[in-house]
Amino acid sequence: MSMMLLAQACATGITNGLIYALVGLGMAVIFKGSRLINAMHGELAVVGAATAVYCVEIAMWPTWLAVTMGMLIAMVLSTLVDIGLVRRLFNRNAREESFLLLTVGLGFTFSAAVLYVFGREEHLLPAFGDEIYEVAGAIIREQTIWIVGIAAFILIGLKLFYKYTDFGLAMMAASIDPDGAATTGINVRLMRTATFALGGLMAAVAGLLVTPMIGVSYQMGPILTLKGFAAAVLGGLTNPLGALVGGITIGLLESLSIVYISSGLKDAVALSVLIVIMILVPDGILGRSGRKGG
């Protein structure tokens, strides 16, 4: 087993892991703000990216405008889902499963809608830069570095937001203890809508960052959701940094099992390890804030 192959496997594992982490980050944010798992998060990422692709390739807009549009559409969609659907479920005190099933249904709908509107092809977006770096024989693309940077930026931003701004604190309070929060004058419903809006934005960001590397197609949503969810769960669900760690863990697991076990069993291995970790480390690798659903 050459060093080069191992280095490449690690580099690829981390890169893919970052992709999962970005999606998981958004899911962790939504969970943190609403105690809900957004099973259509991957589809939101696809919608954001597909919108940007459409703007670039058909409407011929400049990239920055297309990207903004993508983020906007995903945010609006996510917000509408909250206002129109999630709120109704909350109003009648629906059980946890209903929310899960709602988002599963929406995911199904969005995926079919993306196929219907955008077609079956796979599309790429232009990357931030096309440099290639070689580290210990492993190829790393410039886009990966950008992703690391932007992810770090987002993480720091989120941490500051939740810890030091009134709005962020209110969002967390509204989800941890809705009744208590309401008594202090926090508009719980608005906070949840804000969470969904933020989650939608993050999904779009994830989609836009990774599309230059892996392309966007109508089938990608469920895979991204699953991997993102796994990343978030591994990281403890409420901890965005945990999603990063969780995502990278999964990415490395996959890559190393391809190298050391077999490329055919990659999913079986990665998911089995995921189940084992969930059972052995119930709070996730980094999670502290107590997982709901326990």
């Binding site: 496997a9 690829t12 992709i19 190298v259 490329s263």
Partner: peptide, 16 residues
């Protein structure tokens, strides 16, 4: 080397 249908990345297999 094998990749599963719908995989988003097969770089590690490609490296092998």
């Amino acid at each position: 080397e094998k990749w599963e249908v719908g995989a988003t990345d097969v770089t590690t297999q490609a490296a092998k």
